[in-house]
């Protein structure tokens, strides 16, 4: 790891102002992605601004039909939170298959979506549930937030403060885990909103990051059941291909994971 200067912020305002005073700063939440990337020398921030002690970035709130998860809440705290388990159990399940127990104690929802790894789990949940990303400046719809591989709508120095999820009628998430990295070889999040809209998002599949799957949405809209997806054709065009799986394999995984997610959603 290259030299860097470590700062600990005690409020969102302080974090943002520290960022502004640095030449090439990075916000550090759980560090489960940023630190490995810095160790590989793929990132060399002049300054890292630790968000771990900022109280206003911690916690979960359930208010009416909106579940809000503050940005620096860890996967473990999300997984074990009573409101999450009650309102959107699919999110609790998603965190339980993300990383390993030690990683779940440190990694955060804000860190995951700010990095927008094409195989990360949370982007699929945000996109399928139609979540809103809250920052220190504005609110951004999930649709507009994710902009391709490792790329988001965040501006320089803009800090995610929370993610708000509309509580769905039904939701489920299933993924094929890469056995070593535990990232999604492909993961699919399915959701039926309270107004009857069906939204399906796949992660780990597309070359341009998390994506909606309109063909499966249409099939589930007319018949919410795993068998409704049997006849859906998913094109391998634009899907990832690597030593772990071909594009065709991932296209098939989108179908299979969607079917399992619908079963899980009930």
């Amino acid at each position: 790891m290259y030299q860097t200067t470590y700062h600990r912020a005690s409020s969102v305002d302080e974090a943002v102002s520290l960022f502004g005073e640095s030449s090439e700063a990075k916000f550090l939440a759980g560090g489960q992605t940023l630190l490995p990337v810095m160790k590989q020398r793929l990132a060399s921030p002049s300054d890292v601004i630790d968000l771990g002690k900022i109280k206003e970035l911690q916690g979960v709130e359930l208010s009416g039909d909106t579940l809000t998860i503050k940005a620096a809440t860890t996967y473990y705290d999300i997984m074990t939170n009573a409101d999450v388990k009650k309102a959107i159990p699919a999110i609790a399940h998603l965190t339980s298959v993300l990383g390993d127990p030690a990683v779940r104690y440190r990694g955060t929802i804000g860190g995951s979506i700010a990095n927008n790894d094409p195989a990360a789990d949370f982007p699929a949940a945000l996109l399928a549930l139609g979540a809103t990303v809250k920052t220190n400046k504005r609110s951004i719809a999930a649709e507009d937030f994710f902009q391709g591989l490792f790329s988001t709508a965040l501006e320089d120095g803009e800090l995610i403060t929370a993610v708000s999820f509309p509580v769905p009628a039904k939701a489920g998430y299933e993924k094929m885990r890469h056995p070593a990295s535990r990232f999604a070889l492909t993961g699919v999040f399915v959701a039926q909103t309270k107004s009857g809209e069906v939204r399906v998002a796949a992660t780990g599949a597309s070359q341009s990051g998390v994506m909606r799957v309109p063909a499966i949405e249409a099939a589930l809209k007319s018949n919410w059941s795993p068998s409704a997806i049997d006849g859906v054709a998913i094109s391998a065009n634009g899907l990832l291909a690597d030593i772990h799986g071909t594009a065709e394999y991932r296209a098939n995984l989108i179908k299979v994971m969607a079917q399992r997610a619908v079963s899980a959603a009930g």
């Binding site: 470590y6 600990r8 550090l28 560090g31 030690a102 104690y105 440190r106």
Partner: peptide, 20 residues
């Protein structure tokens, strides 16, 4: 893996400063 405030964490993936 070590325990930080009772939780098992990977000490290779934390800055020392984060454990202050």
């Amino acid at each position: 893996v070590v325990h930080m405030d009772g939780k098992a964490v990977k000490s290779c993936t934390m800055l020392a400063g984060q454990a202050d």
